[in-house]
Simulated scan of single mutants.
Amino acid sequence: MIDSKRVVAWTPYGRRRTYSILIRHLQRDVERGLVDEVWAYMNTDPQGQEDDIVYAHELAEQFPWFHLKHRPEGIPRHPGPKQRNTGYAFRHMTDPETVYLRFDDDVVYLHESAIENLVRARIEMPAPTAVFPIIINNAIVSHFLQACGKVPVEWGTVQPYCMDPMGWANGPFAVKLHELLLDHIERGRVEDLYLYQDFPIQPGTQFSVSCFASLGSMYAGLPDGPGVLVPDEEESWHTIHHPLATGAPNILRGNAIVSHFSFFPQHPFLNNTTLLDRYREIADKAVA
């Protein structure tokens, strides 16, 4: 718990390759008393992802704080891309006394202060739909990092657009971002990448939701039913529709850092590096 609020870290789960890194950081923060439960919302295909499914069940057997969550009973699988099924996950997140932390399953680094700082910001600022950390490899975050002099503009200028060609699709740029963070981690200087302040994200601005904090009290009081998002696409709801409905901007928190590994246009570049091995080594040391 943090400031008398339960903390649940959850992930739309699908990939053992990267989640096996994230879970080590989450285990560290469970053992530190910062996280109460970790949920894997199963968003896997029954064929072709057998190893991923087995791994999730192994974690559930190993750790009493790790739980598998599934699409709510009676809700058919979405006919579109399987990512659309994640919008149904919020029907599990209606405890008014809980802060929910969403992580993509390829978030591969959590700074040791990230969860505590993000949750405290979330509690202090109840109006935003979502409070985001500094997400390394997120286009809008990269824009703010450049504005604050943390990422060189010589690498390529990033505009404040979630699918900016440089910040979202450019593989060599993503490699440089990860190398920058890893250098700071290895030198013990991650805090040097903190932003000078929190930044509001204006209502209606689409933002890649690789990681954010939200409140169970918000989902509990939704007009179409507890946890029922309308529209049910989670990124659009959290960054466009609900902020426009409330008039409250989302917030980018300046003192919480996580790292998101890859958007699909970046895969060919990142998969030919040793970056994931370096992140895995750091994660293993987190619970050594």
Rank of each mutant, 00 (worst) to 15 (best):
P203I: 09
G204H: 07
T205V: 14
Q206I: 14
F207V: 10
S208I: 15
S208E: 07
V209L: 07
V209I: 15
S210E: 12
S210P: 09
S210N: 14
C211R: 05
F212Q: 06
A213N: 04
A213D: 07
S214K: 03
S214V: 15
L215G: 06
G216S: 04
G216M: 00
G216V: 06
S217W: 01
S217I: 12
S217T: 12
M218L: 15
Y219V: 00
Y219D: 00
A220N: 02
G221M: 07
L222S: 03
L222H: 01
D224I: 12
D224K: 08
G225R: 02
P226I: 03
G227F: 07
L229W: 00
V230T: 13
P231L: 11
P231A: 07
D232F: 05
E233K: 05
E234K: 00
E235Q: 14
E235Y: 03
S236Q: 12
S236P: 00
W237A: 04
W237N: 02
W237E: 07
W237Y: 11
W237V: 08
H238K: 04
T239D: 10
I240E: 01
H241P: 03
H241F: 08
H241G: 03
H242N: 10
H242W: 13
P243Q: 09
P243K: 04
L244G: 04
L244Y: 00
L244I: 15
A245H: 03
T246K: 00
